[in-house]
Simulated scan of single mutants.
Amino acid sequence: MKGEKWPRYSLLGRLGRRTQETLLGLGTPVGYEAHQRIIRQGDSARHTLLVLKGLVKIVVDTERGRDVVLAVRGPGDLLGEMATLERRPRSAHVIACVPVEGRVIHSPDLNDFLEHNTEACLAMARVLSERLRGSDRRGIDAMVCPAPVRVARTLLEVTRRWGETGTTGRIGIPLSQKDIASLAGTGLSSVEKAFKLLEEAGALDRRYRQVFITDLSCLRRFGELPDEIPY
């Protein structure tokens, strides 16, 4: 993985080369199949996972029996670090969306790495700050934006970070409509209505269990955004 270019929003993407190599040298390599549960909510935090390939979703079991998708993470991201640092049980499940490769880093090794590396501590603080800012923004949108706008903004976020461009130029989204509904804080019926409007406008195309973004500028207008998404 040396010399790999990591997404700039990820932890690895915020680190210099030497610090990247030190972090990549920790732990042991692991692999997971699509839909496999990697971290279980409520378990003791004995390790973190550094994602090298693939995508995962962060899911919480609520007291009302409904699963809520909080976020999607991918290459360069560190998972489970909050429970490790706080020495508290896991606050969410981590489930593989596609096959995942990574490194399992035991908690004492991560703590030792952070205690001796200011750059990594600052980078992790920036990652957590960005996540908090995005969470705040979603809370505001939930109060002031109609469901179709929230759906469009969620699609933009997922596309920007995790979409895969095919040979036809269409960008595939690695999440189900149920996942999109959860991320957007709305119901599945609202997502279906928003998707129908976006399809009619030429912003997306649907196939069996697949969604493709075909016009980002149209999607951005639908989300009432002039340029950058707020998350």
Rank of each mutant, 00 (worst) to 15 (best):
R88A: 09
R126P: 00
A123N: 10
A152I: 00
R153H: 04
A92V: 13
M143R: 15
G76R: 09
R126K: 12
I58P: 06
E157I: 01
V98I: 13
P75I: 00
V98Q: 15
L122H: 14
V149N: 01
G74Y: 14
H116I: 00
K57A: 06
K57M: 09
V158H: 01
V98D: 13
F113M: 09
A123W: 10
V127K: 12
K57Q: 13
I58S: 07
L110P: 11
C145N: 14
V98N: 11
A125M: 15
D136M: 07
V59T: 09
D67C: 03
L78K: 08
R138E: 01
D67N: 11
H93A: 05
S107L: 08
R103A: 12
L110D: 04
H106Q: 14
L155F: 00
V60Y: 06
V100A: 10
A71L: 06
I95L: 12
G76W: 13
A83T: 05
D61V: 02
D109T: 02
R150N: 05
L110K: 15
V151L: 05
G134W: 06
T62H: 11
S129D: 06
V56W: 14
R73M: 14
V69I: 11
A123C: 09
V98A: 07
E101V: 03
P108E: 04
P89Y: 11
S91N: 10
P99M: 04
V60T: 12
A123F: 09
L79H: 06
R150A: 04
V59M: 08
S91R: 15
I58E: 15
R137C: 04
H93W: 15
P89R: 13
M82T: 12
V151R: 02
D136A: 12
V158L: 03
R88S: 10
E119N: 05
L55C: 04
H106I: 03
E101N: 05
E119G: 08
R64P: 00
M82Y: 09
D67S: 11
G65I: 07
R66M: 06
R126H: 13
L156M: 15
T84N: 07
M82N: 10
I58V: 15
N111C: 09
N111T: 02
L132G: 02
A92D: 08
K57W: 05
V56G: 07
L78G: 06
E115Q: 12
L85H: 05
V149W: 00
P108W: 12
A71W: 08
P75K: 03
V151G: 05
C145Y: 12
E86F: 11
